[in-house]
């Protein structure tokens, strides 16, 4: 293996790792705020990537049906809750967010699809299609279980993953798709050939991370999310609604999933069920980083990207096995250093 190959693999590893890092951050955020192990994060990636490719082909992506249908279902839950609490005043807001907004985006996508706009415009439409799915999913599947144990929420996540994967198969079919690149440019950086696409991936990831950091340290809502993660009871006592934090964290997760999907669409062939594996690699990164610290999770995810890139060169058939076995040494170490008996909440 010569230096060129090494540098090429490093470049590949870093751009994959940057995406895993974004996912790891989203997973940690959702877990800290809602205690949900958000496995369906992966489906956002697949939905976004496949929607982008379908828009490029001038077709209406099936995501619109999931979005509008999910929105109606969420609205139904809200209306039922509002009737029970006799709080009709909040209905207009509910309808605007869960019914009108998805419908508007769906109409936009339907209008834009055959017109084959620029890739950047299509990416924005994809974000519009996928991001609202976060709060919608939270409302339908998780909010009714707000005080359930981590274990129950995890099982629900797997169930949601099932349902979304199945819907993905229904609306996108079983074929793998790959989108056109945002740019085919290549340039030389010293001895390395750097593709503009991988620069874009890293740049976008860093930008999103920076934006998240600003959000969490500067805005009151960002701090409210952190407060909920640190102390749930305290958050309720200062009037931060649990549903707001849940919804907001799922919105961020969906945004990150959608961005990752758009970024990954040109560099890999995506099938309806590929998102699951990509999302889980984000989890592996988060576990490598100890499931608590955001910077460590990002580093762990970067390590996953590099490991994957090098193992696909050395032993491509065993790439997945190697990546998913990587958590074992970390678990051994953590298990040797932890001594503690704790009770799960009832």
């Amino acid at each position: 293996m010569n230096l060129d190959t090494v540098l090429w693999l490093v470049q590949d590893g870093i751009s994959n790792g940057a995406i895993y890092a974004l996912l790891a951050l989203a997973l940690l955020l959702v877990f800290a705020v809602t205690r949900v192990i958000f496995v369906p994060q992966g489906e956002f990636i697949a939905y976004a990537a496949l929607s982008l490719t379908m828009l490029q082909a001038g077709q209406l992506p099936g995501t619109v049906y999931v979005l509008v249908g999910g929105g109606l279902l969420a609205a139904a839950y809200e209306i039922a809750a509002a009737l029970r609490a006799r709080a009709g005043a909040r209905l207009p807001r509910v309808l605007a967010f869960y019914v009108l907004l998805p419908a508007a985006i769906a109409v936009l996508a339907w209008w834009a699809a055959p017109r084959k706009f620029d890739l950047w415009v299509q990416a924005l439409i994809v974000l519009g299609l996928v991001v609202p799915l976060g709060p919608i999913l939270y409302r339908i599947a998780y909010q009714p279980l707000a005080n359930a144990s981590v274990v129950v929420l995890f099982i629900v996540s797997m169930a949601v993953h099932y349902a979304l994967t199945g819907l993905g198969l229904l609306f996108f079919g079983g074929e793998g798709l790959r989108s056109a690149a945002f740019s085919d440019a290549q340039f030389k950086l010293g001895v390395v050939n750097v593709t503009a696409q991988s620069v874009l991936v890293v740049l976008a990831s860093v930008l999103v991370m920076l934006a998240l950091w600003l959000f969490f340290t500067r805005s009151l809502y960002g701090k409210a999310l952190r407060a909920t993660a640190v102390n749930r009871v305290g958050a309720r006592l200062v009037g931060i609604p649990a549903e707001l934090s849940g919804s907001l964290s799922f919105l961020l997760a969906a945004f990150i999933g959608a961005v990752s999907g758009v970024l990954v669409a040109p560099i890999a062939t995506i099938y309806y069920d590929t998102g699951f594996l990509i999302g889980l690699k984000g989890f592996v990164g988060a576990i490598l980083g100890g499931m608590a610290s955001y910077p460590l999770a990002a580093l762990g995810a970067l390590a996953v990207g590099l490991l994957e890139s090098f193992s696909s060169f050395w032993a491509s058939a065993f790439k997945e096995t190697i990546v998913f076995t990587a958590i074992i040494p970390v678990l051994v170490w953590r298990s040797l250093t932890s001594r503690h008996v704790e009770d799960e909440e009832e």
Binding site: I140, A141, P144, L145, A148, V152, I155, V156, M158, A159, V160, H161, Y162, A163, L164, T165, G166, L167, L169, L170, G174
Partner: peptide
């Protein structure tokens, strides 16, 4: 295609609710 996973997923969510 294996669409039964849609039904399984939805049933599980409803059951746990």
């Amino acid at each position: 295609g294996s669409y039964e996973i849609i039904v399984f997923g939805v049933l599980m969510v409803l059951l746990l609710h």
